[in-house]
Computed example of a mutant assay.
Amino acid sequence: MNRRHLLGAAMAGLAAPTVVQAQPAWPSRPVRLIAQFPPGGLVDTVSRLLAPIMSQALGVSVVVENRPGAGGIIGTDVVAKAPADGHTLLVSHASVHVYSTATRPTLPFDPIADFTHMVHLVEAPNIILVRASSPFRTLDDLVSAARTQPVRYGSSGIGSAPHLLGAMLGSEARAPNLDHVPYAGSAPAMQDVMAGNIECMVDPITTNTQQMRDGSLRALAVSSPQRLAMFPDVPTFAELGFPKLTSSQWLGLSGPKNLPPAIVERLTAIVPPMLQRPELAARFTDLQTMPRTPSPTGAEFVGIMREEIAAWTAVARQFSIVVS
């Protein structure tokens, strides 16, 4: 090639535009926030508290979509199989990502690998409750009775966190007659406690604060590390001699696996400060469902999940709790 041809090729190279693949703007349309439990529950409530604030921050509508079924697995699977474009997100729940993982032989997704887990949102402790007229005034009254006679505790279902917690209590307290009665949710269990058909129930505090305030239900112990400011007379399991029962059920913000880093960074930046806004903080206090400070994000959140899966899988195996 002569000099003229070399010069022409060089000039052509300089003139050729560099093609850069532009990333589509996000969000470019409304964002679906999947709530995998029915309206009125904790996931739905928290989703609807967050949605308008997220909408304001993102500049598009954030629409809560309830997709209940199979203990939260159906809605969770919707997100696991959604496009990784940031327009379908999940208010993830320990009941699915931890307890179902611990008690079910198979799930349609991997609770870690098939999701991008971004922010630990809030967590709620569990309580053990009796009706106001119950002869059991303390946890010791209840477990002492369960050492010699049947004492039935209700839960929201086989393999649920309350079921596992009750099994641990029976073992730790050497109370072999603390018998599990599963229900299709907390509401029917509460009805049977109130009617005297079962002696007690284990349940997240969130759905029971009103009954505790009006005195129709009495809490004997709470699974939080410290006593709750709203119910200072309720002792913790730990201070009653059962530190292994310290636990909580968390909610998080997750999406499908392989969410683009820019989307993850933006959500991780904007969501934790939202949890501290006065209007949300007041509502979380009412529900006794609080964020950690600071909120665990990314790898820290996933680390919490892995530790809990390992711990509760061991409990499920110890007591042969399997959901088929």
Rank of each mutant, 00 (worst) to 15 (best):
H97I: 00
I112Y: 07
A173K: 09
F301S: 10
L129M: 14
G59P: 13
G154N: 03
G215H: 05
V43P: 00
L178S: 09
P38L: 12
M11F: 13
M190F: 02
A281E: 12
T148V: 15
Q276C: 01
L49H: 10
L129H: 06
V98K: 09
W250R: 12
P188V: 10
V46D: 07
T236F: 08
N2R: 07
S254H: 07
D286I: 09
D44W: 08
A16R: 14
M194Y: 11
I198K: 13
N2Y: 06
A124C: 14
G298V: 12
R3V: 12
P83Y: 06
I73S: 00
P30C: 05
R227Y: 09
P39F: 09
V202G: 01
V91C: 00
A10M: 15
I34M: 03
A299W: 02
P111L: 05
P27Y: 11
Q56M: 07
V96A: 00
T313D: 11
L107N: 04
V96Q: 00
L90Q: 01
I112R: 12
A146V: 05
V79A: 06
M230C: 01
A10T: 13
M274E: 02
L50A: 05
P125T: 10
P188E: 10
M168H: 03
V60C: 12
P272I: 09
N66D: 06
P108L: 10
D286V: 09
D85W: 06
R67L: 04
R266G: 06
A314M: 08
T285Q: 15
I270W: 02
F242E: 01
V181H: 10
S144W: 02
A187E: 12
I74D: 04
I53S: 12
N126C: 13
A167Y: 10
T106R: 14
I263T: 13
T106W: 08
S155P: 01
G69P: 02
P30A: 07
F319H: 15
V193A: 09
V19Q: 15
P52I: 10
G159D: 03
G71V: 00
L14T: 01
H180K: 05
L6S: 14
A132P: 13
L49V: 04
Y153T: 02
V43T: 15
L49R: 05
T106H: 14
A221E: 11
R32P: 04
P273Y: 10
A299C: 02
S133L: 14
T103A: 08
A281K: 14
L275C: 10
Y183D: 03
D85C: 07
H120I: 06
T206I: 07
Q149R: 14
H163Q: 08
Q249E: 14
V130Y: 07
T45E: 11
S295E: 08
A9T: 11
D214P: 04
L178C: 11
A70H: 00
V323Q: 08
E300W: 01
F231Y: 15
A262G: 12
T293Q: 15
C200I: 09
G255D: 06
P135Q: 14
H87A: 01
D192S: 12
P256K: 01
E172D: 14
